[in-house]
C-alpha cells in the first residue's frame, strides 16, 4: 500500500513529507525500544512508535526507513520534524493506540516480517 493509504487507515495527520505520500510501503514494524528496532528489524520501511525524541528519526535513518507513524496522538517538536524533513522521512500522527494501529494496518494487508530467528 502507499503511505497515503496508511494515512487514511490510521486516520493520521501528516506532520511532514506530503510529497512522498504516493511512495509504496511493503511492510512495517511497531516498537518503542529503538535498541530493538536496530537489532531485530530487517527491511521494514515503516515504524510505528510512541516515542518522539530525535533518536527515533536517527534510528529510522540508519534503518533506511521512509515513514514513522507516532501513535496515541503524539507529536514531536520542531527540531525532530526538521531532522525528518532533512532526510525525507514522512512523519504521521495517529490517534490509535499502538496495538490498534498495528492491527488496522495488518488486517489491511501491511504485514511485518514474522517471527524472529
Amino acid at each position: 500500500m502507499t503511505i497515503r493509504d496508511v494515512v487514511e487507515l490510521l486516520k493520521a495527520e501528516v506532520i511532514c513529507g506530503e510529497e512522498f505520500l504516493d511512495n509504496e510501503i511493503k511492510s512495517a514494524c511497531g516498537c518503542d525500544m529503538m535498541s530493538d528496532v536496530l537489532a531485530f528489524v530487517k527491511t521494514q520501511p515503516m515504524l510505528l512508535t510512541g516515542l518522539v525524541n530525535p533518536q527515533v528519526i536517527r534510528t529510522a535513518l540508519m534503518m533506511d526507513m521512509k515513514c514513522v507513524a507516532f501513535v496515541r496522538n503524539k507529536k514531536p517538536d520542531e527540531k525532530v520534524i526538521g531532522l525528518a524533513k532533512e532526510h525525507e522521512i514522512v512523519l504521521l500522527s495517529s490517534p490509535y493506540r499502538m496495538y490498534d494501529a498495528c492491527g488496522v494496518l495488518y488486517t489491511s494487508g501491511l504485514r511485518g516480517e514474522g517471527a524472529c530467528e
Partner: peptide
C-alpha cells in the same frame, strides 16, 4: 528514551 535493552554490543558484533 528507547535505549538500554542490552542489544548494543551484540548488534555491533552482528
Amino acid at each position: 528514551l528507547g535505549f538500554g535493552a542490552g542489544m548494543g554490543l551484540p548488534n555491533m558484533k552482528k
